[in-house]
């Protein structure tokens, strides 16, 4: 194991001061499930490692008037066990439950999943579908809030500045009647990197037309994103089987536009279409 200095800040202020000075040579550790392997493989060589899980204001799940706030060092297990989240964002909770195995879920955190920005992150697509926003803080600039959709620039790269800490994740409450679903496809039932995952959010109006739809596939593109074109195809229309079939084709096209044709495309195209159609069917039965 390489050498570095391990710093245990006593407060948010302490952590921000530390990063203001040494941010460029530091890495922040929360659960460590991504950072430790990176250190061991010497993919990263920080001089300082800043340990944040013991800072209390970074933990927990709170309900506000119009939104929920999730502390960045909230573990996946805490998300899975949260009644608040299970009631309000079942698809997000399902995505947290699909992470690794019990040991990983006990250590790994929502903030870490975002900051690591892996293309195969399990929770990111669900957060994107829920319109997640990130609260970032630094000594120099104070607080700023940005949409998660703008935070991830490329695989493993975020727009976070070196003196900034992710201090909270904000999810707006969903409108009544919003249905959601999450599915992960892996090579085995636990400890599996996602081969593909898909989060859907759907709301119908009183005429049974699609009034809201969010589609976010994960692990199939370098950076997960909402599939706008497919969403627009269905908006304002009745989700008839023929239209869903057509939408599934557009969805696959949107994916290929981003990734180009690769060895795995011949698998991903039909399977993404199949999973989309299957999940739409499930959501429409409800």
């Amino acid at each position: 194991m390489q050498r570095f200095q391990f710093y245990n800040p006593r407060s948010v202020e302490d952590a921000l001061n530390f990063l203001a000075e040494k941010g460029e040579r530091s890495k922040i550790i929360a659960g460590g499930t991504d950072l430790i392997p990176g250190l061991r493989l010497e993919e990263i060589r920080p001089d300082f490692v800043l340990n944040i899980p013991e800072i209390n204001p970074f933990r927990g799940i709170k309900e506000m008037d119009h939104s929920f706030w999730i502390g960045p060092t909230t573990t996946f297990t805490e998300m899975v066990e949260s009644n608040l989240l299970s009631r309000s964002f079942p698809a997000l909770v399902q995505s947290a439950a699909s992470v690794g195995g019990p040991q990983i879920r006990n250590r790994g955190t929502i903030g870490g999943n975002i900051a690591n920005a892996s293309p195969a992150a399990d929770v990111l697509p669900a957060l994107l579908a829920h319109g997640g926003e990130l609260e970032l803080q630094s000594k120099r600039n104070g607080k700023r809030i940005i949409p998660l959709a703008e935070a991830i620039l490329s695989p493993y790269k975020t727009c976070f500045r070196s003196d900034e800490i992710l201090t909270g994740i904000i999810l707006k409450k969903l409108e009544l009647g919003t249905r959601s679903a999450f599915e992960k496809l892996g090579r085995r039932k636990a400890m599996a990197r996602a081969r593909m995952n898909l989060t859907l959010l759907l709301r119908l109006n009183h005429r049974e037309e699609v009034s809201e739809l969010r589609i976010v596939p994960g692990a199939v593109m370098p950076v997960a994103k909402r599939m706008d074109r497919t969403e627009r195809m269905l908006l304002g229309k009745k989700p008839e089987p023929l239209l869903i079939e057509a939408a599934s084709k557009t969805l696959a096209e949107e994916m290929v536009e981003v990734t180009g044709a690769r060895w795995s495309t011949e698998y991903k195209i039909p399977v993404l279409k199949n999973i989309f159609k299957r999940m739409m069917k499930q959501l429409l039965i409800v």
Partner: peptide
């Protein structure tokens, strides 16, 4: 063993 997929107890 992250890449060589042996079954887990769940499988």
């Amino acid at each position: 063993l992250g890449e060589y997929m042996i079954p887990t107890s769940m499988d």
